[in-house]
Design a protein around this nucleic acid. Structure first.
Lengths: 237, 237
DNA sequence: GTCAAATTACTAACCAGTCGGTAACATCAT
DNA sequence: ATGATGTTACCGACTGGTTAGTAATTTGAC
């Protein structure tokens, strides 16, 4: 019968997942190179040699972590990008998903993902870079669409995407699960509001003046940026 | 005489700095643990043993990098925090300084700083954590002040500080000096405008300025208003 | 009894740090 | 100025500990 062997197979892949998860925790805590396979084995109550039943090398272990991180990235990103929603709503969904389901649900995984890219062989590294670029492009697409439809203030979509993704990814550096601290939902909504509304108080921008001289410089720069945006748009008309 | 010995001392500390800089580059590229002292020595055309004239251990080398990173952090942060400026102007200065003089001027150093904290002994780690908290508090202070004075929309200053710092720190992940890509000044001003104004188009959150033609008109109006503000302020200077 | 899971015991490579030494140069008493 | 004495900057060769990966062997579930 194939039933038992399927059970076996399931068992084995389940165990393999446990090995990967243990490695993720250990690599996160000690760093990929400092961590030994004995550490990983100890985390599971196994001997080092037993790990080689499930993975072929330490590097293979790291590759698996990266593959799963990419899966987490793209689990819903594409669908959100393709949803039939107005860009602001799309963006809100994306941010909530990225902060909560991607980063916070996989803290250790992304700590490793962001830290150990250079330990991978060049071929894998190139793939990772491509996939990251794709992810940025999803955000860029939402932003560009929103600007074209007049929902968002016009600005360079790539630079804005970098800002947004950086703000969200950085969460892995300071968020600690449990107990006191910020709730994932609170973080998401705070970031969404900050991104949409900005910092400045709405009613009047007048009191916001520092020294006139600096303000003039600042306004001039804004004026230049505006002029560039106008020029660019006029080409399209 | 003490003159000659002082010259010597200067020479030695200069060489030591070269060693630290080389280590920063190598640690950045390969990671602290993967990098060997032979790699660092090769970068300088020296033998491994020679390094021990300038530093006492590999870990000591890493400590030096962290100390210098903290210096870079605080070189101007405190002064900016204490300046007699309105909070929005203070914040703009801070962001420009952080992106350009802290992160971009020391890319490799901060790549190491953000990646290798766990390789330091616990005592050093605690100090680093304290200093980072202080740095966040400078930003928090500016934000809280700005909210109290009605310049900024009220919100949790710590969470906003995390967002801001994350957005700016993340630059080290994608900024590549030289050639094509974004200019440090452009990045700073873009982030400042995004943070202050937010993403949403000004007049209404709706599709008020849907078509490019209307958008151009809207931007022209903004430009005129800006020009008027500039003219008015220049009279005061 | 057989096969998968796991173990103990081992090897080969690597690397931080040490040691003994050398060449170049400075210092200074004579 | 000279040569005795010390110092600085460096090197090649080595050591001792560590660790990825392997081989031979045991355990135990069905």
């Amino acid at each position: 019968m194939s039933q038992p062997s399927e059970f076996k197979a399931l068992d084995k892949s389940l165990r393999k997942q446990q090995v990967i998860d243990a490695a993720t925790r250990v690599f996160h805590q000690k760093g990929y190179h400092s961590a030994t396979l004995e550490d990983v084995a100890a985390e599971l109550g196994l001997s080092k040699a037993a790990l080689y039943h499930y993975v072929s090398s330490k590097e293979d272990l790291l590759s698996h972590i990266y593959l799963q991180a990419l899966e987490a990235f793209f689990a819903s990103a594409y669908e959100i990008g393709r949803l039939d929603l107005a860009p602001p709503a799309k963006l809100r969904r994306f941010i909530r998903h990225h902060i909560q389901q991607v980063i916070i649900d996989n803290l250790a995984m992304f700590a490793v993902f962001f830290a150990e890219e250079n330990q991978l062989p060049e071929a894998d590294r190139r793939q990772i870079r491509r996939e990251k670029a794709k992810y940025t492009q999803v955000v860029e697409g939402i932003l560009a669409q929103g600007m074209a439809q007049g929902h968002f203030r016009p600005s360079d979509p790539r630079l804005t995407a970098f800002a947004l993704i950086g703000m969200c990814n950085w969460v892995y550096k300071w968020y600690r699960p449990g107990a006191k601290g910020f709730d994932p939902q609170v973080i998401s909504e705070h970031f969404i509001t900050l991104l949409e509304q900005g910092l400045l108080a709405r009613p009047e921008g007048q009191a916001a003046a520092g020294r006139p001289r600096e303000l003039v410089q600042e306004l001039r720069r804004q004026a230049q940026a505006l002029a560039a945006q106008i020029a660019e748009l006029e080409k399209l008309c």
